[in-house]
């Protein structure tokens, strides 16, 4: 396959940045999207150019480090797939592919396609945990958990924190990310004591970071590689309301 790539290049946080066009040839359909970029980068290095910087690590769709907006869609059009798991067989020969970084004020560009997502860590710091120091836990069987609750909590807990939800949201909202963690912990008995204070602290931190508000457009869940459902946001809203009513 031969492809034309239009890639966002930005040498650093203060650079204005621009789209640059690259031709890549002899792309195998079995390559992953990142392997295709690897091949391009190898060429760029040897030509003395700066290779395209992008975040990636596990390359098996679980660490949440990779992520780029491909042809206007976070992680590309293949559903429930991270960029590293996207394969070139989903593209046509001769296609033109636009590649951009996540765009959101709380995710400033570090370089090229690399953005700073530390805002997510700070949302977790605000309350995305159960306060239980090591060694203080009772026996694991002392509190039974309904299987349905455990499964639903797991579904929410599969969030990989990649930030695609923010990138796709027309409002640049981090509601799906925040709601996934709130839902995970609020469904389990272990999360109950801090349930309301957690929701309040995390939502307030999300606002403080400068993320937009949720308008329930559903763009987030559509691109979420783990398919975190939109009703997690309803649960977050409910907990947040209760916390404020107190």
């Amino acid at each position: 396959m031969n492809l034309t790539l239009r890639v966002w290049r930005q040498s650093g946080p203060t650079d204005k940045g621009r789209m640059v066009t690259y031709k890549v040839e002899d792309v195998s359909p079995d390559m992953s999207f990142l392997e295709m970029l690897d091949v391009l980068n190898e060429k760029l290095i040897l030509e003395g150019d700066d290779p395209i910087a992008f975040d990636h690590d596990c390359r098996e769709g679980i660490c949440g480090m990779c992520g780029m907006v491909i042809n206007g869609v976070a992680h590309g059009e293949q559903r429930a797939t991270t960029t590293c798991q996207l394969h070139m067989r989903h593209f046509e020969d001769g296609a033109e592919i636009t590649i951009e970084p996540w765009r959101a004020a709380p995710f400033p560009v570090v370089k090229d396609l690399v953005v700073d997502r530390s805002a997510f860590d700070r949302i977790i710091q605000a309350g995305g945990f159960v306060s239980v120091p090591a060694g203080s836990a009772p026996d694991a069987h002392s509190v039974p958990v309904r299987k349905e609750d455990a499964d639903a909590a797991f579904d929410a807990a599969t969030c990989i924190g990649c930030g695609a939800c923010v990138a796709a949201c027309p409002n640049g909202s981090a509601s799906l990310f925040t709601a996934a963690k709130i839902t995970h912990l609020s469904l389990l008995p272990q999360g109950q004591p801090e349930r309301l204070s957690r929701a309040k602290a995390m939502v307030d931190q999300m606002d403080a970071e400068g993320f937009g508000g949720c308008t329930n457009t559903g763009e987030c869940t559509a691109v979420c590689p783990k398919g975190i459902p939109l009703d997690t946001i309803a649960r977050m809203n409910s907990d947040y309301l209760k916390a404020n009513a107190k």
Partner: peptide
């Protein structure tokens, strides 16, 4: 106010943007 907040949350727009939830609400 929410719409202004949303605008501030995305100061740089995408060159290409394609809705995946049919863009209805947006």
């Amino acid at each position: 106010s929410l719409s202004r907040r949303a605008g501030k949350a995305r100061p740089v727009k995408y060159v290409a943007k394609k809705s995946q939830a049919n863009g209805y609400a947006t």
